[in-house]
């Protein structure tokens, strides 16, 4: 699954995860190539969000390994993982509702100490997300869902990450904003940031992704280049959970 000659940026290999007695992941292996957009598809309770949490160190797998740029992330805390260059856009945005939009975006740069460059990056965000300019001193909680998604993406970019992980970035957005968000993910990616996204909306995600994996009750049932998967009849079955395996 590695792309080209270079080793992958992120690799999950043979990950098994449990919540108490219940097994969530069965020998999960996923790789994200440098500069690629990779999406993980799956229905409810397939283990998608847990995959995000494994990458961010919020949940620890029982066995297997997670490496970023060749080094294991397993012993690290979430803040340490963030410092390695992974930023996140959590499910349902998870903004700091009582802080202003400006404060929210700047919180993204929490791990950085180069104040001047941070200020420049803030300006850059405002050109990337022009709508946020008028909202800077507003409470983040008072924005619409689409605007909040913009803030969450700007916040993630402020750490100058090498990779962004996104949990259902289009969830709960109006069709207009869904297109905007996909467009922005492409733009971010073109600037050299790898993207790993978890999505329920398969057809949209496959439009922008390079590779995709389909997760069903904790197992990868299908994977490959997004272009190939787009035309695969099985994707609909697997995605909709038509044939329940094990």
């Amino acid at each position: 699954m590695t792309t080209g000659a270079s080793e992958p940026l992120l690799a999950l290999s043979n990950v098994n995860t449990f919540y108490g007695q219940a097994q969530v992941h069965f020998d999960l292996s996923i790789t994200v190539g440098r500069g690629h957009i990779v999406c993980l598809l799956g229905g409810n309770a397939s283990g998608k969000s847990t995959t995000m949490k494994i990458i961010l160190g919020l949940v620890k797998p029982r066995s297997g390994d997670v490496t970023f740029d060749g080094a294991s992330l397993l012993g690290l805390t979430t803040p340490q993982i963030v410092r390695r260059g992974i930023a996140s856009v959590p499910e349902a945005r998870r903004l700091f509702a009582d802080m202003s939009v400006r404060e929210n975006i700047l919180m993204g740069a929490f791990v950085r100490n180069d104040r001047d460059a941070v200020a420049q990056d803030l300006d850059k965000m405002l050109t990337l997300f022009p709508k946020l300019g008028q909202r800077l001193s507003q409470r983040a909680g008072s924005l619409s869902g689409g605007e909040q998604q913009m803030v969450a993406m700007a916040r993630a970019l402020m750490s100058r990450p090498r990779m962004i992980v996104m949990d259902e970035p289009t969830m709960g957005l109006s069709p207009l904003y869904v297109d905007r968000v996909l467009e922005l993910i492409r733009t971010i990616n073109q600037e050299g940031v790898s993207v790993f996204m978890v999505e329920q909306n398969a057809s949209l995600a496959l439009e922008i992704a390079h590779e995709a994996y389909v997760l069903q009750t904790g197992k990868i049932v299908l994977s490959g280049p997004a272009r190939a998967l787009r035309d695969d009849p099985r994707i609909r079955d697997a995605y909709l959970g038509g044939s329940e395996a094990a």
Partner: peptide, 15 residues
């Protein structure tokens, strides 16, 4: 303040 509002999200900012 960020931790008070959303502990997990604050951790994901590197706090």
């Amino acid at each position: 303040r960020a931790t008070a509002q959303d502990r997990d999200a604050a951790m994901q900012m590197g706090v």
